[in-house]
């Protein structure tokens, strides 16, 4: 496979042609913030946190769905990008009801850690305070729509890794929400195998193990990575 050479943050990088900018950067030790990206699962470009600047294009491009190209010049850190990322995170926080103090994922939430990493101590937008419910019908897991950021990680692991296709997104825009089968109670779902991959994949406290209380929802993501590697790459490796 043809290799491409490009520059990321001034550094010379070479990567196979079907590599995403995100992976090429990671390979070079450059970390780009992400939320909807999940290693080994196809990318959706849903969160827009990984936006980078590419010389020659005025638009910002999502690193997770942009492939490397010969001579490409990528910038992953700039004032403009930091502004946008901060804005994206604030909008995510304002969209639903993220009350970290009472959240099962407090201290282990990717949204929370990205927010603190970006110095967000307050949100400049009006909170929308939508009324979303909690699905507590599954015997082992729960889904609190109030904390969902619609990253669709759960949808993608359920579809592509587990193969059950239980979860999907219904509706559009601010009214979209995660459903099980035909928008029925999760506990009534015929397709769900109760594998728990969606719970492992969720970056926030939206999906949780039942019975967990504040701050208890710490996920062992290596379990998910193990399965993903095995199914996608036929490699049974435990990452150190």
């Amino acid at each position: 496979m043809a290799a491409k050479t490009l520059k990321i943050d001034g550094r010379q990088v070479s990567a196979a042609e079907d590599t995403t900018v995100l992976d090429a950067a990671a390979e070079a030790g450059i970390r780009i913030p992400t939320l909807c990206h999940l290693e080994g699962v196809y990318d959706a470009g849903a969160c827009r946190l990984c936006l980078v600047e590419v010389a020659g294009t005025a638009k910002l491009l999502p690193a997770c769905t942009t492939l490397v190209a010969e001579g490409m010049e990528v910038v992953t850190q700039s004032d403009r990008l930091r502004r946008y990322r901060r804005m994206t995170l604030e909008l995510l926080l304002a969209e639903r009801n993220h009350v970290c103090a009472v959240c099962v994922a407090n201290g282990h939430c990717e949204l929370q850690s990205l927010a603190s990493e970006h110095g967000i101590d307050h949100v400049r937008y009006d909170y929308r305070f939508p009324r979303w419910g909690v699905d507590a019908t599954h015997p082992r897991f729960g889904l609190d729509h109030n904390r969902c950021i619609l990253c669709t990680r759960c949808v993608r692991v359920c579809w592509h890794i587990e193969g059950a296709g239980t979860k999907n997104v219904a509706g559009r825009g601010a009214k979209s929400f995660i459903i099980d089968d035909l928008n029925q109670p999760w506990g009534d779902s015929e397709s769900c195998t109760s594998c728990g991959k969606c719970v492992l994949a969720c970056p926030t406290g939206a999906l949780f193990d039942r019975g967990s209380t504040v701050g208890e929802m710490e996920r062992d993501r290596t379990k998910l990575e193990f399965i993903v590697n095995a199914r996608e790459k036929k490699q049974w490796i435990v990452s150190e």
Partner: peptide, 13 residues
């Protein structure tokens, strides 16, 4: 031969 969730998702989109 599609998951119901997909059909529902598209129908509500």
């Amino acid at each position: 031969k599609l998951p119901p969730s997909r059909v529902y998702g598209v129908a509500t989109f």
